[in-house]
Amino acid sequence: MTDGDVMRRGDFSNGWKKSFQSLEKWAWRTAVDAAVLLALAAALAAGVNAWKLRGGGSGGLPWAGDWDSYVESKALAAGIGIVTMRELADRVPSAVLDARPRELYRAGHVPGAWPCPAGDVDASLAEHVADLDPAAPVAVYCDGAACADSLEVALELKARGFARVGLYPGGWSEWTANGGAVETGETEAAP
């Protein structure tokens, strides 16, 4: 395309060398301009974020986040998959376990989920999902990204031989904040 353009536009008369030099100059100019825009974007980002962090608006973010200690990182490092809200709503996992305390579970949970509070995994499994195939996908959640109960239960399931354990890191808080359906009391239907 370049060659064709140059020919059509009659730049040939200037000679190839001259036209290449001018092209090189333009390339540099464009690169510098793009770098100026990148720097300006960084300045804007820093300014707006500083303003938000100071309370001028919501949603300020620390510049260096510690994502390695995020529950998702720990889960993935342990061979536990990540389940999204969409997958949970579409009932992709065969069984969903609620790792929160039982009174929170009774007050409201993801439809079809079984209670499986951390620290009580054996009893819960025996009670609700004793005949669950260890090869079936299982999802666990708790309150949200800040709670560790779901990771604890997921690790215990993994240790009990469940091959496809998934964590829903958004948890109950993300589920309700995004209009997920709520079931109260005990789950009636088989998962």
Binding site: L37, L38, L40, A41, A42, L44, A45, A46, V48, N49, L61, P62, W63, A64, G65, D66, W67, D68, Y70, E72, S73, I82
Partner: peptide, 24 residues
């Protein structure tokens, strides 16, 4: 973060910077 490409420390900085590059 979920793309698992950037190192942990760079995720937030990238997320703050990128939208302003898009604006400009």
């Amino acid at each position: 973060y979920r793309y698992r490409i950037l190192p942990s420390w760079a995720v937030n900085a990238f997320a703050l910077w990128l939208p302003w590059i898009e604006v400009l």
